[in-house]
């Protein structure tokens, strides 16, 4: 059996734990703790180590889904988490004060990993705050010469998360065949 992994990252409250839960086989193992600092203003618990879920594949292979802790102070975990990863899913919370700053931060932090693999970005909470819109994200990225799949995502919806992963996979290998076409 071979193991592969996709990394979910993003700021606190962006929906990483929810997104992993929506597509993995079983409820993910979560290392959420009661938040005791500024994070508490956003949500009651936060992930301090990582979220972890699996998707069993044909042939006995297994895909591991890892969510990074949302708090920057735990960034020492990230290198360990991304090691051997096949791609990155970045989730951004549109209600945060400066989601572009968040995006730039994570793109910068994971730059080496992204260069070796690919990235897909999901923007959550757009139903609560519609600005900036997806177009604004693209405009921001285009200034850096980047063309990245960015979708409006509801992390609770399997279909949305699934589409993000598909975009990631096709970005890695456009020659893949989609059997439902």
């Amino acid at each position: 059996m071979t193991n592969y992994k996709i990394i979910f990252t993003g700021p606190v409250g962006a929906g990483k734990t929810t997104a992993i839960s929506s597509i993995c086989d079983r409820p993910p193992v979560s290392t959420d703790k009661i938040a005791s600092d500024m994070t508490r203003a956003v949500k009651k618990t936060t992930t301090v180590a990582c979220d972890y879920g699996t998707v069993r594949l044909n042939g006995g292979d297994c895909l591991h889904l890892y969510g990074t802790p949302g708090q920057e102070r735990f960034d020492f975990m990230w290198d360990i988490l991304v090691s051997g990863g096949i791609g990155l899913v970045l989730l951004l919370d549109n209600t945060r004060p400066n989601p572009f700053q968040d995006m730039d931060f994570f793109l910068d932090q994971f730059q080496d990993f992204i260069n070796q693999t690919q990235i897909a970005i999901g923007v959550t909470q757009m139903d609560r705050k519609s600005a900036p819109c997806i177009d604004d994200y693209h405009n921001h990225l285009s200034k850096q010469g980047l063309t990245i799949p960015i979708f409006d995502v509801d992390a609770r919806k399997r279909q949305d998360v699934s589409l993000l992963i598909k975009a990631l996979l096709f970005s890695l290998d456009p020659g893949l065949i989609e059997n439902n076409d």
């Binding site: 096949i86 992963i165 020659g175």
Partner: peptide, 21 residues
């Protein structure tokens, strides 16, 4: 040609799995 990814088989499996979901 765009290079075939070394994990194409696993990606294909994953796509199939996502479709079945």
């Amino acid at each position: 040609p765009v290079k075939r990814h070394r994990y194409r088989k696993i990606f294909q499996n994953l796509l199939e799995r996502l479709r079945n979901n």
